[in-house]
Design a protein around this nucleic acid. Structure first.
Lengths: 252, 252
DNA sequence: AACGTCGTTCCGCCTGGCGGAACATAGATC
DNA sequence: GATCTATGTTCCGCCAGGCGGAACGACGTT
């Protein structure tokens, strides 16, 4: 009877979502065999699930290559969730204004487990090799936004420990150093990081009245573009933006 | 045996997506009873499906009210689809530039059945009551973007007929008038509409080499803000943007 | 206290999902 | 061209798991 463990792998529905998750994670359309391999399921099972998803319109199959990919209908489904999200709604105007006055790329992130989730982004008109994308996750301690949030989180140490343990390249996270850094973040009100080489990020938390950070706004720019004065200007704008947004969010 | 008709309503998976669709369409979290009512399903069935979705992390239940809502995990799932979308990727830079030079809100739409689907939007720094949202659909003939696409679509007449039949307020679509208008759109290269009162939209198609429109870019602004010269400037920028984008897309 | 409404749990029936295997098709290798 | 391998699709008997009616429990209302 295979016990009752089955945390969430048995049954059509969990498998259907597993299919969709691997399909959407893949940059390009996937072959049936690749899916079965990754999911560890039977060919016929995956095929049946895909057939169902095609009928529903959430998956399409390239008639030439036979490869499967998720359709925009899946995107539509999710898009409605975010438009109703209170923080994203509240932040929109502030992000836009901050983008305008700094001229750099600004993003809105929230915490999602030990990661940081990019909710929104307004890119700089000036060129920047900035590849984080809306909807993607990054381990919180590696980013400015994540550190801004963790600085005010009760379980920050646990997050650092788990993240350090899970990272491939251990050099990317020095727990002691980041712990000290979080203290600084609390003092001065903003965090810094260079998650991507050549790109510096500054971030400040959106504080709720419970004194923990609901989200963070970050400004990213190529390292060579920000000198000392530019840095000061960015931080000033960033802090005032977050302060006024917190005021508004607090009223909700 | 209830016959083999079951186009897509029987079985857990179709029902699961039906639940998610109604949940995401609703502006606020829904009660179980509201869901069962709208879906025409058994209480226990909906409840079981919701329980499964909660385990998977796609739905959350407010512990106080008991109301159910979709989570950001569902949004993440869909977000990956759009970042890989070729047209959206190609358009990003052009949209940004067009937004900058016109100073108005620009959007990217594609055709989805008889509707137009908003893929991306870059809002004007100037205030505008502009409520169409990314991921939402609008009947194609009512919008500038839709008309720009239909003007080059073989089945435009069929779309007009179906849309006219399905609209609540019949006055919103005059088939004969729009048919004539599409002819004009082909001649001058752009379409106009006022889908929302007080907001005028201009749109031009992104033409592929098959001489049908893959997508359209539109510029929207409050009617009182655009005088005759502003209008001419917007249209000039719009047309040149679409032309250069078509050139790039054609190379893909 | 009795009623109505809602969410949750239980359980027997039986449908529809399951996976092994057969079939089909297309390249690759000799 | 024949054989082989890897892939996608279809078939089918078995039975797990989904199904919905009904009972239960928790609130709120009159």
């Amino acid at each position: 009877m295979t016990a009752k463990l089955a945390s969430a792998t048995e049954g059509v529905v969990p498998r259907t979502f597993a299919v969709l998750e691997t399909l959407t994670r893949s940059p390009e359309p996937m072959r049936l065999s690749a899916l079965t391999l990754r999911l560890g399921l039977q060919k016929s099972t995956v095929h049946r699930i895909l057939a169902g998803l095609i009928v529903l319109g959430y998956v399409q199959q390239n008639t030439e290559t036979g490869c499967y990919s998720a359709t925009l209908k899946l995107w539509e489904l999710g898009a409605n969730v975010i438009t109703e999200h209170p923080i994203k709604r509240a932040a929109s105007g502030f992000l836009q204004e901050l983008q305008r006055v700094t001229g750099e790329t600004v993003s809105l992130v929230i915490r999602a487990g030990d990661d940081v989730l990019y909710l929104d982004k307004m890119i700089s008109p000036r060129p920047i090799r900035f590849t984080t994308r809306i909807g993607s996750r990054v381990p919180a301690p590696l980013t400015a936004g994540g550190k801004a949030i963790l600085a005010h989180a009760a379980d920050a140490q646990a997050v650092l420990a788990r993240t350090a343990a899970s990272l491939r390249d251990k050099r990317r996270l020095d727990v002691a150093a980041v712990t000290a850094e979080l203290e600084q973040v609390r003092e001065r009100g903003y965090a810094m990081a260079s998650y991507q080489p050549g790109v510096v990020g500054f971030a400040a938390p959106i504080m709720t009245r419970e004194s923990d950070a609901a989200a963070a706004i970050s400004v990213s720019a190529p390292a060579e573009r920000v000198d000392e004065t530019g840095r000061a200007a960015i931080i000033e704008h960033l802090l005032s933006t977050c302060a006024s947004m917190a005021e508004q969010v607090g009223r909700l």
